[in-house]
Write a protein that binds this DNA or RNA. Structure first.
Lengths: 149, 149
DNA sequence: TAGTTGTTATAGTGCTACTAGAACAATTGG
DNA sequence: CCAATTGTTCTAGTAGCACTATAACAACTA
């Protein structure tokens, strides 16, 4: 998996790395067991410090996305195996919270509910890599997202 | 309008203030022309420094939500009047971007597209203060949101 | 004129992001 | 076993942001 960062971005480097790994997990480009570049090699590739990459990986480890073992490296974890119902409920609450914030700001800007929902449907389709109308299975829909952006 | 802050929160104080004003604008609790507490008085009420409130108001001014004039105070702006089509398009792009991020993270956590969309519909309804089934007008739906949370 | 308001300037504290160098411990492969 | 690689931990420094603190200045109101 190719990881790229934007040094001029406001977003911290370690969060950019995190986002891209999460993105890879979401699209299926990264499967459980896949090896990720080592802390040192990725740091060299990106031209950043070792500790910055280490922090990104540590966050991903705390979130259950990867497993780190010294001497062996970093690999994608089987997140489904370590998912407690409480954790899922927390994720759901956080998502609901974030969606509410977006909807409120959209309304404050004069946007309509319909516009918000049509964008939500559009972006959900992009994230899941399907046409907005279809109803695919939930599991594994590898990469292939020829969306704009 | 009553503004409250949580000093123990991770979110910066000035952004907490901003969010609550935006929330007020969204629900209609704050109408164009309404006066907001002065920088100094709100700072005293909240127990924070004047500059913290000033920064919050400055952000709101830059976003077009309020107008500040020295000697007179701060009032809610008529945002619709100062909304260029380009600005609206930018807002839309940002929202789409944020929604895509949320959808991708949701998928990375193993969540389904259907779950994401049902939450989006639910929270949009909460933000617009209507039952999820109805199709109300876009404009003015004052406060009244007896949702959980 | 006096009081209130936003505006600006300087300065200090604490925290986070990032960099830097170094050493240590577990694991792997020759 | 030995050397290389990997994650882990430590100390330390720079830069920027959030917040506080004083103070002065400028525009508006009563």
């Amino acid at each position: 998996m190719i990881i790229q960062i934007d040094l001029s971005s406001d977003e911290p480097i370690y969060l950019q790395i995190r986002s891209q790994v999460v993105h890879g997990v979401a699209t299926g480009e990264l499967q459980a067991g896949d090896a990720l570049p080592s802390v040192r090699s990725l740091a060299t590739d990106l031209g950043v410090n070792m500790h910055t990459v280490n922090k990104a990986y540590a966050v991903l480890r705390d979130e259950g996305y990867v497993a780190m073992r010294r001497g062996r490296g970093v690999m994608v974890a089987d997140r489904a195996a370590s998912l407690t119902p409480e954790a899922h409920s927390l994720d759901r609450d956080r998502l609901a919270d974030d969606l509410l914030k977006l909807a409120l700001e959209h309304r404050a800007r004069g946007g309509s509910r319909e516009e918000f929902l049509s964008l939500a449907i559009e972006q959900a389709a992009a994230a899941y890599g399907v046409a907005p109308g279809t109803t695919p299975g939930t599991t594994s829909n590898p990469a292939s997202n020829p969306t704009k952006r």
